[in-house]
Amino acid sequence: MATETQDAAGAAQAPGMPQLDFSTFGNQIFWLLVTLVVIYFVLSRVALPRIAAVLAERQGTITNDIAKAEDLKAQAADAEAAYEKALADARSEAQAIAQATRDDIKAQGQAAQAEADAKIAAKAAESEKAIAEIRASAMENVEVVAKDTAEALVSALGGSASKADIDAAVTNRLKG
């Protein structure tokens, strides 16, 4: 097979593996060195410094952004604290207002109650007076009726008594 390859590869080619064809080595090495030198200069002069700069710049930007973010975070925390404070103030104020209102209402209620109590007391006193009057008049009537009845009874039984005696006796019995 090796000999056939030799024919196939053409008359100018060496036998067997193309890798061992020493006539092409000089050519390959020359062009390889050219390639490497070109790549080296392109990389070291242009590409690598530029990429390093971009990476450094990005690193800087990221650091700045993180610092800025920290700043904003602190601001946000401040704002939150202020908000909390305002909220607490508002709540205590609301409580104060509610307390005042409650006190007010309580005072009004007490005043109304006192007034009502006074009215009731006045009415009660009036009623009591009326009752006492009524009772007094009733007592008087009872005495008159008793005296009359006693007088009638005495006369009916055939006795006679002076008016003064009957009055004294009735009054005495009524006192019981």
């Binding site: 092409t24 050519n27 390959q28």
Partner: peptide, 24 residues
């Protein structure tokens, strides 16, 4: 192994030092 043969891009002559080949 034919794919590894180094041959000139233009013409069919021998591969000298500065020939532009398929490898080049």
């Amino acid at each position: 192994m034919d794919q590894f043969i180094v041959k000139p891009l233009m013409g069919d002559g021998p591969v000298s030092m500065f020939t532009v080949t398929n490898s080049t």
